[in-house]
Design a protein around this nucleic acid. Structure first.
Length: 274
DNA sequence: CCGACAACCTGTGAGC
DNA sequence: TGCTCACAGGTTGTCG
């Protein structure tokens, strides 16, 4: 479900309900996520006030008044979602965890359990899961075509795999990788070290553009992504190639092709993308 | 260091 | 209608 735009949409939806509120504890119904939810989670955060909800890559970071550094790390994996609900709302299937506030809960649902909810007292940026992450595409200023070009030196993976590598740039998942490469007119299969510097400048611009527009549309809903208020994201209507195998290319009309690249389905126009 | 691939888990939709 | 199978938006770890 969630790439950067969906995580950012989630963050914007729930943050206003949380900031300034005091945590009354956590209810863990299923601790077996990608990593086990810490046994001491509830004890650690009870009585703490929420200072803010930040995003780094596809991680959501709940900053509290104590400890001074760190807090709660959340990741939605492939199928996770977060909603604000009245405290007495009965949990449904796969509602693995609640963070409890006075009259409401932040409820975490994740059928496939690829996500995670962790506690850390070290600065978020130093946590092992976050330490190696590359630049934020929308906010860092470090994300440039030159940097992409440099990251490609000495590598020969397909360019689609390069931009999905979290050490190169974060937040570009399978949907927006295909979409960005379509806009940049680059064949996703092309070896990343066989692409000119100026094309990487174009690609960086296209990545930023696609992610920005997806956030403005409230994310992409393919099967089950919904906002905290239950409404879908509308960016799927703006997808040019993703999930559109056989449909005409919006640019030239040739049928869009799908092919597995690096174990993931990819969509592109053989005619427009070189 | 690099790249390919399996693994984690459940739900869904296509096809028979 | 009901069954089976392939596949799904992410990330990590292992192996050669």
């Amino acid at each position: 479900m969630p790439e950067l735009p969906e995580v950012e949409t989630t963050r914007r939806g729930i943050a206003p309900h949380l900031v300034g509120e005091m945590l009354l504890g956590a209810t863990v119904r299923q601790a077996g996520l990608r990593q086990r939810v810490p046994d001491a989670l509830s004890q650690q955060l009870t009585g703490r006030h929420v200072l803010g909800l930040e995003r780094r890559a596809k991680y959501l970071l709940l900053r509290l008044d104590q400890p001074r550094e760190g807090g709660v790390i959340l990741h939605l994996g492939m199928s996770g979602s977060l909603r604000i609900l009245p405290a007495d709302t009965p949990p449904g299937p796969h509602d693995h965890l609640d963070l409890r506030f006075n009259d409401r809960v932040l409820r975490y649902r994740d059928p496939r359990r690829f996500g995670l909810v962790l506690w850390t007292e070290q600065p978020f940026a130093e946590h092992p899961l976050l330490r190696h992450l590359g630049p934020e595409p929308l906010t860092s200023g470090e994300f440039t075509g030159a940097r992409l070009h440099k990251a490609a030196i000495g590598r020969r993976v397909a360019v689609k795999n390069l931009i999905m590598d979290n050490r190169v740039v974060v937040g570009v998942g399978n949907i927006y990788a295909s979409e960005s490469l379509f806009l940049a007119r680059i064949d996703p299969r092309r070896a990343c070290n066989r692409i000119a510097a100026h094309r990487y400048e174009t690609l960086a611009i296209c990545i930023r553009s696609v992610l920005t527009k997806a956030i403005e549309a409230g994310g992409t809903t393919l099967r089950d992504f919904h906002h905290e208020d239950g409404k879908p994201g509308y960016f799927s209507q703006q997808l040019n190639v993703y999930n559109r195998a056989g449909e005409p290319c919006p640019c030239c009309g040739e049928p869009i092709r799908s092919q597995v690249i690096g174990q993931r389905s990819s969509f592109f126009c053989v005619h427009c993308q070189r």
